[in-house]
Amino acid sequence: MDRIKTWVGHLRNDRRAALGLILLIALLVGAVGAPILSPHSPNDFFDGVRETPGTEGHPLGTDSVGRDLVTRLLYGARVSLLVGLGATILAAFVGFAVGAIAGYWGGWVDRGLMVVVEVFLSFPAILLAVALVAFMGPGLSSVVLALGAVGWTDFARLVRGEVLALKEREFVAAARAAGAGDLRLIVRHLLPHLAGPMVVMGSFALASAVLSEAALSFLGLGVSPPTPSWGSMLADGRGLMRVSPHLTWIPGLAITLAVLGFNLLGDGLRDFLDPRTRY
């Protein structure tokens, strides 16, 4: 609780992070409040297609097939957030497990796992994601899995490095002397120390996952219709930039602001936790 209080205090001084937080609160409100805030249902069709913003009943206009854009935008916030959170949690979980095992046990285990990490790291991420989505078929869960599969290496390297440093510290020896097993030691004693850096990295990972979802949509491998995601809205509108620019400006700005929010928050958190750390 105290940590949070100091953090709020810190925010007052760090306007970048405050801006990030405001953007993310807006995102969260949109995502959670979508059913209440939306004037329509995301899959209601209206006769007017590609109506411009300000059209009666459609504050942001309608999309390429005549669905209300503000509604799609709000529900899209849910999907984008879901994709981002899902991919990041998956990446953090796998990355933590691999990194902690490698760092904690060291030796051959470490070397072997680090080769695997290097393999994934040097493999072109976008190819891996494209191949995974082609394998599983486009859709929400495929996108989450694909983005998780390319994102875990960053976490693994981070966690391994931290664990290598932490395990020499006294509290680890003390815990071990008190009879803590390996698993307990890692989860109960090491994890709390890793939480900060992992949250920071998670914030950046979320940012990149939201962008990657858009990239996959561009390649035609995003979520399946009619699920509204910002990436698929942007990709759908890109051929219409000349006649209906709002179809790209609106989801494009939404993605940019959300990603900006995650990046700024990550920067702020990192500064707060340890201004000297770099990721």
């Binding site: 990239a215 990436g231 990046n263 920067d267």
Partner: peptide, 30 residues
């Protein structure tokens, strides 16, 4: 650090990494 130039520099640099690449590309072309 903490001054207006810091904020501006951060906004510019972080802004650049927040725009979806293909959209940015198409906007630049237009």
């Amino acid at each position: 650090r903490g001054g207006p130039y810091d904020y501006l520099a951060v906004l510019v640099s972080v802004g650049g990494m927040s725009v979806p690449a293909f959209w940015l590309g198409l906007l630049l072309i237009l």
